[in-house]
């Protein structure tokens, strides 16, 4: 009898643990999980921002609509991720060859305090010539980042300097301005060019 009681407690305990695990799964990974913080970016047609490109031209969402777009946030004082991503993008553009000419390619700074138009002009000149560098007032950078659902944050470093944490994914939009997909920083690089082609095909679908 006593043994059966203990077995019963054991079963109830195991059941409780299983239930706890299930509830935990449901809330964290299962259907009950909250919407991920990185929501889907807005369509370019729904965005509203005014920035300046590295040649001093005023730009906004309308600058991008009509051609597929590849865009990326970063800053020129970034020693690792940004030059690496810009080199990767340059490599993908080389792989695409003539197809790349149909694309808008934009590098948007999250550090407008240091990344002036001149700083952006010099920086982008070292990478593929299709890459445009955009900067602008802090408030406008916040608006474009919000539209892309991109995050950035200023982080002080030793000696009074600062660095920027930022979304390192590369965003792809179709010619009509619809968000297509993104290339995550840690994604195998051979997936990138097919994804860019998907954004390019989006244009064809939009046109027909």
């Amino acid at each position: 009898m006593r043994r059966r009681t203990i077995a019963g407690y054991g079963a109830a305990g195991a059941g409780a643990i299983a239930l706890t695990l299930f509830v935990g799964w449901w809330r964290v990974d299962g259907p009950g999980a909250p919407e991920p913080i990185g929501q889907r970016p807005m369509a370019l047609t729904e965005m509203d921002f005014r920035l300046t490109d590295h040649e001093g031209n005023e730009v906004g969402p309308e600058t991008l609509i009509g051609r597929p777009t590849m865009a990326f946030f970063g800053f020129t004082y970034c020693p690792d991720v940004c030059p690496t991503t810009l080199s990767d993008i340059s490599g993908w553009l080389d792989d695409l060859g003539d197809e790349a000419k149909q694309l808008n390619v934009v590098f948007i700074t999250v550090d407008p305090e240091r990344d002036t138009v001149e700083a952006m002009a010099e920086y982008v000149s070292y990478f593929h010539p299709a890459i445009r560098g955009w900067t602008g007032p802090e408030g406008q950078i916040a608006r474009i980042a919000d539209g892309f659902r991109a995050a950035y944050e200023r982080v002080p470093t030793e000696g009074g300097d600062y660095t920027m944490n930022h979304t390192a994914s590369v965003f792809l939009f179709g010619a009509a301005g619809r968000f297509v997909t993104m290339i995550d920083y840690h994604e195998p690089r051979e997936f990138a060019v097919p994804k860019i082609r998907r954004a390019l095909e989006e244009e064809t679908e939009g046109a027909t």
Partner: peptide, 18 residues
Amino acid sequence: MMPEIHETKTNAEGVSSM
């Protein structure tokens, strides 16, 4: 003047930090 080993990490939301 200040060389240091740093590590870049990218979180689940795609945000990179050093």
